[in-house]
Design a protein around this nucleic acid. Structure first.
Lengths: 241, 241
DNA sequence: CAAAACATGTCGGTTTATGGCATATTTTGC
DNA sequence: GCAAAATATGCCATAAACCGACATGTTTTG
């Protein structure tokens, strides 16, 4: 079952992954596997090592090749939204002050940020400081927590990472619904209740809004004075420009 | 200031990033920037589009190229430990049941897992289920929380992801120190206090251990009956095989 | 000591990538 | 409406690279 990678780069990526997957295979076997010459495999190994992958080899009978076992992942390809979700999750976790993996986490966050275009990097770097984990909700408050609407959450998510101004319809504790124009600043977790801390334009004050009490969201698009009701229309039209 | 990428793959990655960074540049400018022909740039564009990157172009005066602005990061290169840290953070954040970015997060987690060698993937996929966020610590307990030792945490981190058996020296609430042989199962966060839930071999029971009360850690290495005191010797010797 | 494996050098043939040119198409400015 | 500017595509000769094969050296194991 020889594999035929399309590209040289392809072949090298594949080889790297195989080396991590199944250690101890000889170069000759790999050559057969990829339908190529042995020399090519060694050239690939050289190139990979030059790129910094710690490929180990043992000579003699029973020898073979392997990628140092606790090393390198191949490349991780994340779509933008996935990377954003990951960043937010990492920001949240960091707020819990994990004693165990904090260093690795910080480095991973920086790497993830580096993958964003420079124009966004600065903005997203601050995102971490906009998530807070507070003291937990009282039993009574936690009791009343409902699953928030997905469509509302999608819109709030975007408004949060883009720091856009939104109009929301908010159901107050007494049951009255009011319209607010707020500037989303900060997310606050009083577990299991999630809040948004925002500047309320109407009251000119900082208030907290429970996610599950936000009924509809309207995002203001700065570029076109356009308003798109994200709660009903989805977010497809949100591409700026 | 022409840049000279080493490789064709390199050049294409660079081009992709530039397209996201600075939109609206013309192909001719890019060619000059990379010290290559215009034709090559167009070929690169073709290849990148084939790979699925939504590169937009506008013709005519003032036209140019750009990557659709909210799209694709380039490749994210994470070292193994960084990826593990990210996974753990994401697991922790997921336990908080974030209403906002849960979907993206789950997808990102899967992508990250896919980058691990198949042998580890299954094991790491279960890692998510071994992190719990419980009800928060009482004021009295939170008050007594100390910063745990870094060296201890490093060792515990490894023992956790590898599910190794460890010997610990544990300081009980009354101040007595006892030696335990425990099997690390689960991490429990009663914010801000982090616990390890583990099976205690001596008592044959499941107990919780506060991170800040664990004084030393000794990790058992299954392969060589060897024991390495990670709290003092670091973890360099932990490479299995 | 011989076999097995990694590692490296060289060489000729082949493949591929590249750059230049021509050309079509779309958009914009005048 | 025309010229200029830009994307987009095809073709081709050439230069670069890649590759396989062979030779050779080195390390490890039985």
């Amino acid at each position: 079952m020889p594999i035929r990678p399309q590209d040289r780069a392809d072949r090298r990526d594949l080889l790297l992954r195989r080396l991590g997957d199944a250690p101890g295979i000889t170069a000759a076997t790999r050559a057969e596997e990829f339908g190529t010459g042995v020399r090519t495999i060694f050239r690939d190994l050289e190139a990979l090592r030059e790129r910094g992958y710690p490929i180990e080899s043992s000579r003699g009978r029973g020898g073979g090749l392997r990628l140092a076992p606790r090393w390198g992942l191949g490349r991780v390809l994340l779509a933008r939204d996935e990377a954003l979700g990951a960043l937010l999750a990492m920001a949240t976790a960091e707020q819990l002050r994990p004693p165990m993996f904090a260093d690795d986490l910080a480095r991973a966050r920086r790497r993830l940020l580096d993958a964003f275009p420079t124009s966004e990097r600065r903005r997203l770097a601050l995102l971490r400081q906009r998530v807070y984990v507070g003291s937990p909700a009282s039993a009574a408050v936690a009791e009343s927590w409902l699953e928030p609407r997905r469509s509302v959450m999608r819109a709030l998510h975007i408004a949060f990472v883009e720091t856009r101004v939104v109009d929301i319809m908010y159901r107050q504790a007494e049951g009255r619904d009011t319209q607010r124009t707020i500037e989303p600043h900060v997310i606050l977790v009083n577990w299991p209740v999630w809040y948004r801390v925002a500047h309320d334009h109407l009251r000119d004050d900082v208030r907290t809004f429970r996610f599950d009490r936000i009924l509809t969201v309207t995002v203001f698009l700065p570029c076109a004075q356009q308003m798109i009701d994200c709660a009903t229309a989805g977010v497809a039209g949100l591409e700026p420009l």
